[in-house]
Design a protein around this nucleic acid. Sequence first.
RNA 1: GCCGAUUUAGCUUAGCUGGUGGAGCGUGGGACUGUUAAUCCCAAGGUCAAGGGUUCGAACCCCUUAAUCGGCGCCA
Length: 442
Amino acid sequence: MKNTWIGDVQSGQHDNKEVELKGWVKRSRGSNKIRFLVLRDSTGTIQCVAKRDALGDESFEEIKSALIESSIILKGMVNVDERSEGGHELVVTSVEIIGPVNPETPFPITESAMAAADGGETEFLLDNRHLYLRTSRMTTMLKIRSSVFGAIHSYFRDLDFLEYQAPNFVAGAVEGGSTLFEVPYFGKKAYLTQSWQLYAEAAMPALERLYTIAPSFRAEKSRTRRHLTEFWHAEMEVAWATNDEIMNHGEGVVRHISSTLLDERSDELESLGRDLDLISRFADSPYPRMRYDEAVETLQGLGVEIEWGQDLDYSKEKVLTQDFDVPHFLTHYPKIAKPFYHRVDPDDEKYVLCHDLLAPEGYGEIIGGGERTWSEEEILARIDEEGTPREPYQFYIDTRTYGGVPHGGFGLGVDRVCSWLSGADHIREVIPFPRDSRRVTP
RNA sequence: GCCGAUUUAGCUUAGCUGGUGGAGCGUGGGACUGUUAAUCCCAAGGUCAAGGGUUCGAACCCCUUAAUCGGCGCCA
């Protein structure tokens, strides 16, 4: 165990006291008589000063030999000193190298590699992801990610939602069949799940308010800054709810995530160059709602070529969201653009009761959801109309056969939210080991 | 799947109309008692992605292949 954290030292909790610091060498510089070693742990960094006179030749040579990313235990006195970054420094009295780094195989990630990564990750950094994780940029992203996950859990749990788990091996598709990963399953075929939704609908009559955060898999060869083949999907399902009520939750959770980040991660957001006033607007301002038809008219007004009935692809979302300063909902898409489980609008059968939440700054879709087709008669009609086989969905149809009720839910791309709120250049930057169509390693 | 681009030392890169590949970081050695990505000196480290072609001569021109990057479609 360790009992002294660098973050606490930097906040003044150990001034003028003797402490033992355990961490990794971030940087080392100095002369043959004095060394400045910057030590890093999960809570921060601190400059440690070692003088040959005070320390003795043996320990001084040892501290000199500690290459970058060696793990090390240092004892010493905490001094308040404005010459040191963070205002504190450790005057070293003893040195113990725990995990030395061999000079023949120095830590491969250098300043130049990091500088190049600022405008997007290089192949080298992706190949060395296991080591890149411990750099300040990735550490920052992972801390933000942790807070986003925590905020999603607390939003739903505070509202008495129950966390519920669905299988990851499934037999049928939620989205189009071409995007399923097929896996051999004892002589049969199975697929990796694309969504928790269908299995959540089965539990809806039991739990009524349920949610999850789980991985979903899509075999899309998308090469964009918003796509992964394995991504973390926050999904919820509520009985007796309308499209508007589901949207209230979508807005609620994104606002809660934003305010949680402001509480817990404002330093990290600022270090990424994020404007905190902007994040405050995501936390405080209402999210406007616009029907699909209005969006099409707006786009046509801007000279974008689009026909009614087309789904809105990213190029159109981007045009639409560029001037927004808060997320917007798009609702009531044409039936022909959406799969069978979306409920047809009883007021106008051309549309379905659905919504997408588009993040501003040109980011695009972060939530997709809506009311579900809930009567047995309608679900069978919609499945047949689409030409989807009934057989893999028999369990799903049964949920309507026995006491179907109006209900709905949404799926939120957690990695997308992390990427958007942190201002990352690419979704890969916010997940520790990104998976895309060309990479499953390390 | 389609379109565009890239590939030079461990990393980041320079390399002109084709004429014996330079640097910074990192590593090793040396100097320096307050450095902030320390600085200064020295050294090691390259079949220029792979294969083929044109040429007296190719990192550079042409062809093939591979890997990677960016964008599109699709979506969270």
